[in-house]
Structure formats: C-alpha cells, structure tokens
Deep mutational scan, measured.
Amino acid sequence: GTVHVGDKTYHFPTPDAAKKFAQEIAKKLNLQVTVKNGTWQVH
C-alpha cells in the first residue's frame, strides 16, 4: 500500500499496514484521510 502525507510518500508491504499508518498519522496530526485506488492520502 502507498500513503501520501503532504509531499512525502510511504510504501507498505500490505494494504492493511498502509491503512493503519494513514489512520494513525491522521489522528495524530488531526487531518483527514481519503483513499483512492488503494492509495491513501492524509491531508
């Protein structure tokens, strides 16, 4: 899975790992999470 946070991109071996990371970052930074075609965006 891929997660975009601002101008950074993180790659994870599984979709679940990407989802978990995106949700944790969003919670920590009080941001929104959207997913499109398996790519997570934190914004």
Rank of each mutant, 00 (worst) to 15 (best):
K19Q: 14
T39Y: 10
I25W: 06
V35L: 15
F12Q: 01
K27G: 09
K20N: 12
D7H: 12
A26N: 02
D16N: 09
T9D: 05
G6W: 12
E24F: 14
A18N: 00
A26T: 03
T2M: 09
A22R: 00
L29V: 03
A17H: 08
K8H: 10
D16H: 10
K19M: 14
A17L: 13
G38Y: 07
A26I: 02
T14R: 04
L29G: 06
P13N: 12
T2F: 08
K28F: 08
G6T: 04
K20I: 12
A18T: 02
T34L: 06
H4E: 11
G6Y: 12
H4A: 08
Q41T: 15
T39A: 15
W40Q: 02
K28A: 12
T39I: 15
K27C: 06
Y10L: 05
T2A: 08
F12E: 00
T34M: 06
T9N: 05
Y10K: 01
H11L: 10
P13W: 06
Q23F: 15
T14G: 05
H11R: 09
K20D: 11
H11Q: 08
W40N: 03
Q23N: 12
K20T: 11
T34V: 08
V33H: 03
D16S: 11
H43F: 13
H4Q: 14
Y10H: 04
V35T: 07
W40G: 02
Q32Y: 07
E24Q: 11
G1Q: 10
H43E: 11
H4F: 12
W40P: 02
H43D: 09
T39F: 10
A17W: 05
V35R: 07
G6H: 10
T14C: 05
T39L: 09
T14I: 03
K36L: 14
A26P: 00
D16E: 14
G6M: 12
K36G: 07
Q41S: 11
N30L: 05
V42E: 03
V35H: 15
L29C: 03
V35K: 07
G38D: 13
V5E: 01
T9P: 04
A22Y: 01
V33Q: 02
H4N: 11
E24T: 11
P15N: 13
Q41F: 15
T34H: 06
K19W: 11
H11P: 03
Q23C: 07
L29Q: 05
V35D: 09
P13C: 06
V42C: 02
T2K: 10
K28H: 09
L31Y: 08
V33F: 09
K8S: 07
Q32E: 11
H43S: 12
K28I: 10
K19D: 09
D7S: 13
H43T: 12
N37F: 05
G1H: 14
G1Y: 15
V42D: 02
T34Y: 09
D16A: 13
T34I: 08
D7L: 12
Q41M: 14
E24Y: 15
N37H: 06
Q23R: 07
E24R: 11
H11S: 08
K19S: 12
W40Y: 14
H43M: 13
N30E: 06
T2P: 02
Y10T: 01
P13F: 07
Y10G: 00
K36A: 13
Q23Y: 15
I25L: 13
T14H: 07
P15L: 13
V33G: 02
Q23P: 00
N37Q: 07
T2E: 08
D16Q: 13
V5R: 01
G38K: 04
E24D: 13
V3K: 00
K36D: 13
T34F: 08
F21Q: 01
H4M: 15
V35W: 15
D16I: 09
V3T: 02
K20A: 14
K19P: 00
A26G: 09
V35N: 14
I25T: 08
H11E: 07
W40A: 03
A26D: 01
V5M: 09
Q32D: 08
G6Q: 07
H43W: 11
N37M: 04
I25P: 00
N37G: 10
V42W: 02
D7F: 10
T14P: 00
G6C: 03
T14K: 04
Q41C: 06
V5K: 01
Y10I: 05
K19A: 15
T14D: 10
K20Q: 13
N30A: 06
T2H: 06
A17T: 06
A22M: 02
A26H: 02
K8Y: 10
H43Q: 12
L31V: 14
F12T: 01
H11A: 06
F21E: 01
K28C: 05
P13M: 09
T39Q: 14
A22S: 03
G38W: 05
T9G: 03
L31H: 05
A22L: 02
K36P: 01
T2R: 09
V42Y: 02
L31N: 03
A17G: 08
A26K: 02
Q32K: 12
L31G: 14
V3P: 01
P15G: 10
P13G: 09
L29I: 03
I25M: 10
V33C: 06
P15A: 14
A22C: 03
G6K: 06
T2Q: 08
K27E: 13
H4T: 13
T34A: 06
I25N: 02
A26M: 03
V3G: 01
K28T: 08
N30V: 04
A17C: 04
K20R: 10
V5W: 15
Q23H: 15
V35Q: 13
H4S: 09
G1K: 10
K19T: 06
H4G: 04
N37P: 03
P15I: 10
H43R: 07
D7P: 09
A17E: 14
L31D: 02
V33S: 04
G1D: 07
E24C: 05
V42Q: 02
G6A: 07
N30D: 08
P13Q: 11
V3R: 00
A22N: 00
W40D: 02
V42M: 04
G6E: 06
P13V: 08
G38Q: 07
F12M: 03
V42F: 04
F21L: 02
D16Y: 08
A22E: 00
F21P: 00
D16G: 10
Y10N: 01
V5P: 00
D16P: 03
F12P: 00
E24P: 00
V5N: 03
L31I: 05
G38T: 07
H4C: 08
V33W: 05
H43K: 08
N37Y: 04
D7G: 13
L29M: 09
N30G: 15
N30T: 04
V5I: 13
Q41P: 03
V42N: 02
A18L: 01
L31E: 03
V5H: 06
H11N: 08
K36Q: 14
I25A: 05
P13T: 12
K28Q: 11
P13S: 13
F12W: 03
P15Q: 15
K28M: 11
F12C: 04
I25E: 05
K27T: 12
K27N: 12
Q23T: 13
Q41A: 08
E24S: 10
I25Y: 07
Q23G: 06
V33I: 12
K8T: 09
K27L: 13
F21Y: 07
A18Y: 01
K27V: 10
D16F: 07
P13L: 07
V5T: 03
H43V: 13
K8L: 11
K36Y: 13
K19Y: 12
K19R: 13
G6N: 08
A22V: 05
H43I: 13
L31P: 01
A17D: 11
V33D: 01
D16W: 07
T39R: 09
V35P: 04
H4W: 09
F21H: 02
K36N: 14
L31Q: 07
N30P: 01
Q41E: 15
T2Y: 09
K19E: 15
V5Q: 02
T9Y: 10
T2G: 03
T9H: 07
D16V: 08
W40I: 08
I25V: 11
A26W: 02
Y10W: 08
T2W: 11
V3F: 01
V33L: 11
Y10D: 00
K36S: 14
V3W: 00
V35Y: 15
T9Q: 08
V33A: 10
V42G: 03
Q32R: 11
I25S: 04
D16K: 08
V42R: 01
V3D: 00
A17R: 07
F12K: 00
D7K: 13
V3S: 01
F12H: 01
Q41D: 09
P13E: 13
T9E: 08
A17M: 12
K36T: 14
A17I: 08
G1W: 14
Q41W: 15
Q41V: 15
H4P: 00
H4I: 15
W40E: 02
T9C: 05
G6D: 06
N37E: 12
E24W: 15
A17Q: 12
P15C: 07
G38L: 05
E24L: 11
K36H: 15
N37I: 03
F12D: 00
A26V: 03
K36E: 14
H11D: 06
K20P: 00
K27D: 12
T34Q: 06
K36F: 13
W40F: 14
